[in-house]
Structures are given as C-alpha cells and as structure tokens.
C-alpha cells in the first residue's frame, strides 16, 4: 500500500469524493429540517423541500400579484445590471491606470501612493457618504462597487504590468517602438488576460458591495429581496435566492475563464 501522500484519486473517484460533502450536507439538512418540522409544523427556520418549491414557483414562475412582474427575473436583471456596470467601469479604470503606473515610472511615482492610500479605506465605511452625494438611486450602488474594487484592480494590474520582462521592453525599442507603441503592442495585449483573471478575483467583493448597497436602499434586486423577506423569517425564499446568487457568481466566473482560454491561448498555454 502506497503512502497516503502518494495516493491519487481516479477519474470516477475524484467525482465521487467531490460530490460526497454536498450529499452529506443535503442529508444533514433534510434530517434536521424533518426533526424541527415534526416538533413544530409552523417552524420557519429549516423549511421542507416542498415549501422551497412553492417559494421558487411563486418568486420565479408566477407574475407578482402586486406588480404583474416575475420577481426573480426583475431582481436578477437589476442586480446584474448594477454589477455589470460597476465591474466594467472598474475594469476600464484599472486597465488604464494600471498600465500607466505599471509601465511608466513617472506615473507610478505620482499616482501609486494615492492608490495605495485609497485602497486602505474600507469601502463600506464610506457608503453613507456615497448615499449623501449620489442619492439613493442607481449611481450610489454602482459607485460602491467601483470604489470597492477599483483600487485592487489598479494595484494588481500595475504589478502585472511591472512583471513583463525588461528584455521584452528593450526588444520592442530595438525594433523601433516608441512609448505609445510599447504600451499598445506589448503591455496592453499582455495585460488583457491578466485583467480577466483579476476581474474574476474581484467579483466576490463586487457581489458583497452590491448586496450591501441593495440591502440599505433599493426597490428591487437580489440583495434587496433577501433583506426584505428577512422580516418575515422567510427562509424558504432566502435560501433559494442565496443558491441562485451563488450560481450566478459561478456562471460569471466560468464564462470569464472560458473566454480567456479561447481568446488568449498563448497565455494559458505558456502557464
């Protein structure tokens, strides 16, 4: 028998081992839920599977009695729009500033200390300021995402730009490139796949800021809904919403990863 440290799971074994914790968690939940509902049929903390499916039916597939809209759809679109705009603007700022500070020492000297300082401000602490300045509308929520993840993106991309081997920058100059050409033909194309992976990393925080902002001031959105139904202890709605948000986050991450592999084969091949 081989030492434990040298033992690998086969292809089937890997799937089985990966699924096992999920199955255990599901079974534990069902057992606990059953036990609580046995003691008190009106218990709201651990709803049964049937109340989940009722809640999902109500939120996703039936028009709301009040507005005639499909609640889950409206919430999802609103949240994804805020997240998309916030992340896209952050990525754009991160790309421009990151490339400038990463490849031009004079820019780095001027801007880096400011960015470092900004990145240390806890974004949620200035959320009230954002609501005061930008009102309770969409802008404040998008701004929170931008303020939350842009400093990280700038610093990460600056570092990635600095990691481009000096040899290549010298090489570009011996081929006759000026500064602008070095940035557009060397730094920018090499940074793009790294931007995608930085964005994937920052999506977690982006969701956090989105849900926090929606919880405080919104009229629709996934985060708004969760905090709204919390008042009625509606676990049958909250848990499916959390699962749905998790799925959306996973799908976004997966899509970005696949896009990067398809668009930048040289980046993923060389790793």
């Amino acid at each position: 028998m081989k030492k434990l440290i040298n033992r690998q799971a086969g292809p089937v074994g890997r799937w089985a081992l990966g699924l096992l914790p999920f199955v255990i968690l599901a079974v534990l939940y069902l057992v606990a839920s059953d036990a609580r509902l046995d003691a008190n049929p009106n218990d709201k903390l651990l709803p049964s599977l049937s109340s989940f499916s009722d809640a999902i039916e109500r939120m996703a597939f039936e028009p709301s009695k009040r507005s005639g809209e499909y609640t889950l759809l409206v919430d999802t679109l609103a949240s994804l729009q805020r997240l998309g705009i916030g992340v896209a603007i952050s990525a754009l700022i991160g790309l421009v500033v990151g490339i400038a500070t990463g490849s031009l020492p004079l820019f780095r000297a001027g801007i880096s200390p400011l960015v470092t300082g900004m990145s240390l401000v806890p974004p949620l602490a200035i959320l009230p300021i954002l609501f005061i300045i930008f009102g309770l509308g969409e802008l404040a929520k998008v701004m929170l995402i931008i303020i939350g993840i842009t400093p990280f993106l700038i610093r990460d991309l600056q570092q990635r730009a600095e990691e481009i081997p000096t040899e290549q920058i010298i090489k570009m100059q011996t081929l006759g490139a000026n500064t602008w050409q070095i940035i557009t033909r060397l730094v920018w194309p090499q940074i793009m796949p790294r931007l995608l992976s930085s964005v994937r990393l920052s999506l977690g925080s982006a969701w956090l800021f989105l849900i926090a902002a929606e919880a405080i001031a919104a009229t629709e959105g996934l985060g708004y809904r969760i905090f709204l139904v919390r008042r009625y202890l509606a676990m049958d709605v909250i848990l499916p919403y959390v699962a749905w948000i998790t799925f959306l986050a996973f799908a976004l991450d997966f899509a970005l990863k696949r896009y990067s592999q398809w668009r930048y084969p040289w980046f993923h091949g060389a790793q």
Partner: peptide
Amino acid sequence: ETRGIVFQRYSVLPH
C-alpha cells in the same frame, strides 16, 4: 533600432 538584440530568454513576444 541601430542595435538589435537576442537575449537568452524572453526575447520573443509570447502573445
């Protein structure tokens, strides 16, 4: 461009 160079590594552009 008056002086061309080939380094031991990283001479060509990977992208």
